[in-house]
Computed example of a mutant assay.
Amino acid sequence: MVDATEFEHSYEDCDNSYYEEDTVVFTVNSNQGNFKKSDLFIANEPVTLLVDVSAKVSILNETVYRHKFAKYQLHAPKQSLLSYNNETLEIVGISYLDVELDGQIIHKHPFYISRQGACLMGVDLFNALDFQIYRHGSLIQTMGTTTADVICQFPSVFSGFGEISSFSHSPRINPQVPPVSQRLRRIPLSVRAEVETELEGGTTRYHREN
């Protein structure tokens, strides 16, 4: 059980032309705030991780890796990581290690090995361990919820058009800013011929009806 009132985090982004696809990842700023920690075993070694449910990946710093897990192979990293202030994090590789907590074992979980910084439990490991978030004793989010679970729990939202009742949307508008007309969205090339055919058919039907 994790108390959400004590979470502090910032984000990391992926930005490197070497990789085929950018993936958003996160990390905490360990210089400020109080964080929840989890004591567990990684490859039979006791390790304390900072819990950050905004982090998509879990991270071990190189000092911990060299001290406890040097015998385990390092693999090439799958993505590059940037800190909240847009500085590149130096990742030396990924190591796949078994994780054990209260008798539950997660086999070959990926850990990114960074040159420095905190050791983090990202949402990937958070989900794998079936952790949940509580606030003042009430469950506010289950990280492992699937799409099917949501559909079963809220069937009315996914039938018909659906709507939110007892809510009035009031966007904040600055009256000092003049409105600007935006260009129409361009039709993608892949469907342009299909759209032209549909438009021509509609024109033909209009002439026939009139």
Rank of each mutant, 00 (worst) to 15 (best):
C152T: 15
I106N: 03
S138N: 10
Q104H: 07
G103H: 01
Q141S: 08
G137M: 10
E100D: 03
G117F: 02
T142M: 07
C152M: 12
L129I: 08
Q104F: 13
Q153C: 07
E100F: 00
D130Y: 15
N127V: 04
H136M: 15
G137Y: 06
A118D: 09
I113E: 13
K108P: 06
P110W: 04
H107Y: 11
R115G: 09
T146Q: 04
Q132S: 07
G117M: 06
Q116D: 07
K108D: 12
G144V: 09
C119M: 12
M143R: 02
Y112I: 12
D102G: 03
T142A: 11
M143P: 05
C152S: 14
V150S: 03
H107Q: 14
Q132V: 07
I105D: 02
G122E: 13
V123H: 06
G137F: 08
K108S: 13
Q116E: 08
H109R: 09
G144P: 00
T146L: 02
N127R: 10
Q132K: 12
H107T: 09
G117R: 04
Y134K: 15
Q153N: 10
H136W: 11
V150Y: 02
Q116A: 12
E100S: 15
T147R: 14
F126Y: 10
Q132F: 01
I105P: 01
A128D: 05
T142H: 05
R115V: 14
S138I: 07
S114H: 11
F131R: 09
G117V: 04
M121F: 02
L129C: 06
G137E: 09
R135M: 14
S156V: 13
D130I: 00
Q116R: 09
H107L: 10
P155W: 04
T146Y: 01
F131Y: 14
T147F: 06
A128T: 04
Q116S: 12
I140F: 00
A118F: 05
L129M: 08
G137I: 08
G137W: 10
S156M: 09
D149F: 02
S114M: 09
H109T: 07
G103E: 02
C119N: 15
C152G: 07
C119G: 08
F126R: 02
S114W: 03
Y112F: 15
P110Q: 04
I133E: 14
A118R: 15
F131H: 10
P110A: 05
Q153M: 13
I106G: 02
M143H: 02
S138D: 10
Y134D: 06
G117K: 07
K108L: 13
V99T: 01
K108H: 13
F131A: 10
L129N: 05
R115I: 12
V99G: 00
C119W: 05
A148L: 05
M143G: 03
S156A: 11
C119T: 11
S138L: 11
D130L: 07
R115A: 10
L139W: 01
V123N: 08
I140E: 03
L101H: 08
Y134E: 09
R115H: 13
D149I: 03
